[in-house]
Every structure is written in structure tokens, then in C-alpha cells.
Amino acid sequence: MNDAAPSPAAIQEVVHRGVPLAAAWGIEVLNAAGGGATCRLPWRQELLRPGGTVSGPALMGLADIAMWAALLGVSGGRDESLTTSLTIHFLRRLDPGPVLAEARLLKRGRIIFGEVMIRSEAASEIAAHVTTSWAAVTPRS
């Protein structure tokens, strides 16, 4: 396994190529190294739900991408692991605006465990807490 961390731009390119929805939503990888990653979801009207808050599916997708970015950051940019579970607790509504997801790996092995904290870019309060597990998959050559 390669522990050299590619640049955030290189990881973002892998993410956008691997998950075209991340590119369509404009998800940005701000950093990804040392078992952690921060991703940014720009404000987009189509990601809102009735009541003017950012939708749960958008937050779940952002959390999943942030965890993959953390894995890419510790694997030299090559990771084909698969999400096996994602549990999200919505703690407060997110008003329209950019959203940040801060992921960190808790345990790596055949099963990978992590957590993601989601908040508005304009606030420090956590709006959603995510726990997730992944099945480790070795990239094909």
C-alpha cells in the first residue's frame, strides 16, 4: 500500500472520474491526507428540499465522497473499497449555502470504519454526524 498522499486536486480528479455525480454536483476536495479529508459541496438550488434546507440525499452523498477521499489520501490515490454501511444523524437543518464534510478514518483493515462531520461552511456547529464502514478492495492493476 502506498502511503504517499496525492494532491487534493489529483484526488478530486479521481473522485469526479469515479463518481460522475460528484462532478455534476461540483464537490471539491479541499484536503485529503493523514487519514482525513475535507470536501466542499457548493450551494446548488437543485440540492434543496421543501422548506429550503439542504436535502438528506445530498448530505449522504457528500459524506460518502468525503470518506472515499480520505481513503484515496492514504492509498496513493488508488482505492476501490466499497461502502457497506452509512448511518447519518441529522442534528440541525442546513440553510442554503456551501456545506463542508470532514471525514476521518477510525480503523483500517479488511473492514474500514470512519466518521464524517457535516456543517455549513458559514458555521461551526455540526449539522450531521455520519458513521460508515467499507469493505477494503485492492485496486486492479
Score class of each variant (00 low, 15 high):
M1C: 12
M1W: 11
M1A: 15
A4W: 13
A4S: 13
A5C: 10
A5Y: 06
P6F: 00
P8L: 13
P8H: 01
A10W: 07
A10Y: 00
I11N: 02
I11A: 07
Q12S: 06
H16W: 15
G18S: 14
V19W: 09
V19N: 03
L21D: 03
L21V: 02
A22T: 01
A23H: 09
A24P: 05
W25H: 15
E28Y: 00
L30K: 04
L30S: 08
A33E: 14
A33I: 06
G35A: 10
G35Q: 02
G36T: 10
T38L: 10
T38A: 06
P42I: 13
W43T: 06
R44S: 08
P50S: 04
G52V: 03
V54I: 11
V54Y: 08
V54K: 13
L59P: 00
L59I: 07
L59E: 03
M60P: 02
G61V: 01
L62K: 11
L62V: 01
A63M: 02
A66N: 05
W68F: 13
A69Y: 10
A69C: 12
A70L: 02
L72K: 01
G73E: 03
G73Y: 02
V74S: 05
S75T: 10
G77L: 04
R78D: 08
D79V: 10
T83W: 09
S85M: 06
L86H: 07
T87R: 15
I88W: 13
H89E: 15
L91R: 08
R92G: 08
R93Q: 07
D95H: 10
P98H: 13
P98R: 09
V99E: 08
V99L: 00
V99K: 08
A101D: 05
E102R: 13
E102H: 12
A103R: 06
R104T: 04
R104H: 09
R104A: 11
K107M: 10
G109L: 07
R110P: 05
E115R: 06
E115Q: 15
M117P: 00
I118P: 09
I118K: 02
I118S: 09
R119Q: 12
E121P: 03
E121N: 02
A122Q: 12
A122K: 04
A122E: 10
A123Q: 11
I126Q: 04
A128N: 09
V130L: 13
S133A: 15
W134Q: 05
W134V: 02
W134M: 14
V137S: 11
T138E: 11
S141F: 14
